[in-house]
């Protein structure tokens, strides 16, 4: 179980800004997120970076309840 923060187009595709999602690794949490949020979210996820607690993280990274995962699509600030 981890906190997932959904940003920009990922927020729009998921319909929520934050979610608690099951899984012991980053990859497991994202697989469960795709199941929950559907194909539009999967498309955005495919082009997004994943951060754990604000840092880039590999798919096999272990995650727990105190971790915040951010789904970070390509950015367009300024």
């Amino acid at each position: 179980m981890s906190q997932v923060l959904l940003l920009g187009p990922a927020h729009e595709a998921a319909g929520v800004r934050r979610a608690e999602i099951e899984g012991d690794t980053l990859a497991e949490v994202m697989a469960a997120a795709v199941t929950r949020f559907g194909p539009r979210f999967a498309e955005i996820l495919a082009i997004s970076r994943l951060w754990v607690n604000g840092e880039d993280a590999p798919a096999d990274q272990a995650v727990g309840p105190s971790d915040e995962i951010a789904v970070v699509p390509p950015v367009s600030g300024g």
Binding site: E12, P74, V75, S76, G77
Partner: peptide
């Protein structure tokens, strides 16, 4: 512009879309 998580949605009279100029963070 390249390192801060920020997303721009362009709004016109009858619609809107995310900016087409997005780049990998």
């Amino acid at each position: 512009k390249r390192t801060v998580p920020m997303w721009k949605r362009e709004v016109w009279q009858n619609g809107s879309a995310w900016s087409q100029e997005a780049q990998d963070i």
